[in-house]
Amino acid sequence: MVVLTMPWAYSKRLTGQSVVLYNTVMKGLCPKGLVLEALDLMTKMSKDGSPDIWTYNIIIDGLCKLGCLSDANILLNDALARGYLPDIFTFNTLVDGFCKQLKLDSALEVVDSMLSQGVTPDMITYNSLLDGLCKAGKYNDAVETFKDMVEKGCVPNIITYNVVIESLCKSKKVNEALNLLHEMARRSISPDVVSFGTLIKGFCDNGDLDGANELFIKAEKQYKVSHTASNYNIMVNALMQKLNTQQATDLFQEMGERGCAPDIYTYHVLITGFCKAGDVHSGHSLLLEEVDKGLTPALSSFGQVIDWLLTKDRIHDAVDLIRLKVSRGIVPGVVNTFFYVSKREVVAPKIVLKDLLK
């Protein structure tokens, strides 16, 4: 916490040019984290005359970015006590800061202060509140805040809708979330890749893979949204959990065709699914492909494939994977399956031990 002292002594007024000069210097200091230096400058400024509301805004913004919200609030109250009317930027900076720290009661107190000063909350104010409520898991409150926002004539933007869609999906109200697409269309707001990713995940979490797949296709065909690896991963993961290996593989191949490179998570989900389905060959092939593409597989991906190879008595393939792990600097886990492998393959543990000792 930055300890604030306010030795304001208004002996004379600064010229407009001097105020701008002071503010410019402070605006350069605060983004670099030099808020104490900016405060010292503000103190000096007070001896020469009076700071303006932008002076306060600059320091409050700097304090909020440092997480010193109590100090920022003290500065806001000082501005109010001295007759300065904070603008929407001042209040939004504090609301956003409190919401990021999930201090929602404090954020709402700032909103009350806004209203008492005749400042109307805008889209940025509401977006900060909605984001904070959603991150705090207060999804129903987020939806109610959204309704209040619309009723008061504050027009939402794509960020607003994406937060509300997430809140509705987390509350298992996926159909209500889907209806927001129509409302967005009426406002000429195009849903983006985040909107569809959230909706697709919502349908998957509800076990409605057909609905999720329909949305996945609709996003590209109707809304011209190009899916990212994240959206593909949501679908691939949901399909592999149901052991729908064929459709998941088709999506995996589609990723490559669309120039959307699969990542470590994509491979991990596929490898895990194939191992659960008993298709060790496909899991093993994908693991080797992942390594060939320069990716470092998850430790658990190695472990699952090695365990399954050992249960199939493919000892040498398993040992080769362990060697590969060691060569890539990946610390091997304990492979319990060795204890259940045919005793005539006693040479395998010796090879592994030799590699580990290296």
Rank of each mutant, 00 (worst) to 15 (best):
V2F: 11
V3D: 14
L4D: 07
T5L: 13
L14R: 04
N23A: 06
K27E: 10
G28Y: 03
L41T: 04
M42W: 11
G49T: 05
T55L: 00
Y56R: 00
I60E: 00
D61H: 02
L63N: 01
C64R: 00
G67N: 08
G67T: 02
L69T: 07
N73L: 14
A79E: 00
R82G: 03
L85R: 15
P86T: 06
Q101G: 06
K103L: 13
A107G: 05
D112E: 11
D122E: 06
D122R: 01
A136L: 07
D141N: 11
V150C: 11
V150R: 11
N157R: 03
I158Y: 06
Y161K: 05
V163E: 04
V163D: 01
I165L: 09
E166A: 09
L168M: 13
C169F: 02
L178Y: 14
H182R: 12
H182T: 13
M184Q: 06
S190R: 12
T198P: 02
N206F: 07
N213E: 13
E214K: 13
L215R: 05
L215D: 03
Q222W: 02
K224P: 03
T228Q: 12
T228I: 05
M235R: 10
M240N: 10
Q247L: 15
L251P: 11
P262T: 02
Y265T: 00
K276G: 03
V280H: 05
G283Y: 03
S285T: 08
A298K: 10
L299E: 13
F302D: 04
H316Q: 12
D317M: 04
G333F: 02
R344H: 15
I351T: 14
V352I: 15
V352P: 10
L357V: 14
K358R: 13
